[in-house]
Design a binder for these strands. Structure first.
Lengths: 217, 217
DNA sequence: CCCAATATCCAACGTCCGTTGGATATTGCG
DNA sequence: CGCAATATCCAACGGACGTTGGATATTGGG
């Protein structure tokens, strides 16, 4: 039966036309459920129902529940990493164009991050639940969080060296802003006036940037 | 049998000397487990084992699992509310003693909050998991979070009126710092050098206060 | 067209869960 | 002491869970 081996879906393997539960469909549905209610509260039958298929079909495509959860997080992380890495590169380019463009680049970087999370609130759910996993926290932090954090911290360090701003604790500063954005998204999920909340939070984030990162005297 | 009615333990009702699983013992054990692994991942048998009793005993004293979870959160929230309310009152007293003591009072308030969470990391676990509950978020926010937040925001507003600092968005500012502290505690749970982390974060929090809340020009 | 591949479903297995009825031992009170 | 109260445990129930073996229908490649 070769059940548990992940079905090779690479180039060369044909995809059947009657496939209703593609891995993409399953992962997207599962990611939303996991983000909203957590790993233990979501059942495989519920994921299957969200895709309109039987539970055995989900297992056929995804293997175990833990593997499905891992796929959801990897997918979400890849999208976030792609968006942020590009924004970091843009911000780095502006560093040599003077203090004005450099600070504008950092503001742009913050906006990209806020935009990303506002568009995909489930990312916040997955990240926060991951951070709450006690045993694998260090492992997951090293694999997922650290590379992204370090990229942003490096931009701050370069901006510091270029005399654009002064930042003695980029490690904590970046995490502080990231968690603030996550808090904002969590509030959005049940907020009455989303548009107003979005506008006010964006203004706060930029004020945070301006006040926390003043140009060196 | 009168099983589910909470056993009246108020004054007048004698407490038996052979009681091993007092409500306090159960709640403390359950709060730690719930904070670390979440509501769904913790079983009643596990809570009972942590207290050294049978699962039926836990049900006898606490009723349902949901009621036990509610008790844990209420207990933790009461302790936090008590500590913070007192610190807020102290900070408010200092507002009329000039800008120096007023700002020192705010720093003290931040320290009290950090001390509380560093001493009881499980509080962070319970809060974050609560904020992630999608359905009851608004209800719980109104019952638990809002009163505390408003007390702190009121101090900031009074400090603003007294000319000690300028704070156009106390709502978001307070939440931003609160989440930063929670992030710090989550990192502590698996951190290698807790003492160093604690020292650095405290310095960051005070820098955050100084930069985010400059005295009005 | 024929066949191998596979996407899907049904039914089931074993396990763990929250919960409870009832029995037992231990206490405080008169 | 005698009695009522209760703290504790044992055993079990019904249900939900993750997982899987096997049957069935549908496809693409030759």
């Amino acid at each position: 039966m070769e059940r548990m081996t992940t079905p090779r879906r690479g180039p060369g393997r044909p995809r059947r036309a009657d496939q209703r539960a593609t891995p993409d469909v399953i992962i997207e549905a599962a990611a939303g459920l996991f983000a909203r209610r957590g790993f233990d509260a979501v059942g495989m039958r519920e994921v299957a129902a969200a895709c309109g298929v039987d539970v055995a079909t989900v297992h056929h495509h995804m293997g175990t529940k833990a593997a499905l959860y891992e796929c959801c997080f990897a997918r979400v992380f890849a999208a976030e990493s792609e968006a942020l890495t590009r924004a970091v590169a843009t911000a780095r380019e502006g560093l040599s164009a003077g203090p004005g463009p450099a600070l504008a680049g950092l503001h742009e970087l913050v906006d990209v991050f806020i935009d990303f999370l506002e568009d995909r609130p489930e990312v916040t759910g997955l990240w926060l639940r991951r951070w709450l996993e006690p045993d694998r926290h260090a492992e997951l932090d090293a694999r997922y969080s650290e590379p992204l954090y370090q990229a942003v911290e490096q931009v701050l360090a370069e901006a510091d060296a270029a005399g654009v701003l002064s930042e003695p604790q980029p490690h904590l500063a970046v995490r502080s802003l990231v968690w603030s954005v996550h808090a904002h998204v969590v509030g959005l999920l049940s907020g009455a006036n989303g548009a107003r909340q979005r506008r006010e939070f964006r203004a706060f984030a930029h004020r945070w940037l301006d006040r926390m990162y003043p140009p060196p005297a």
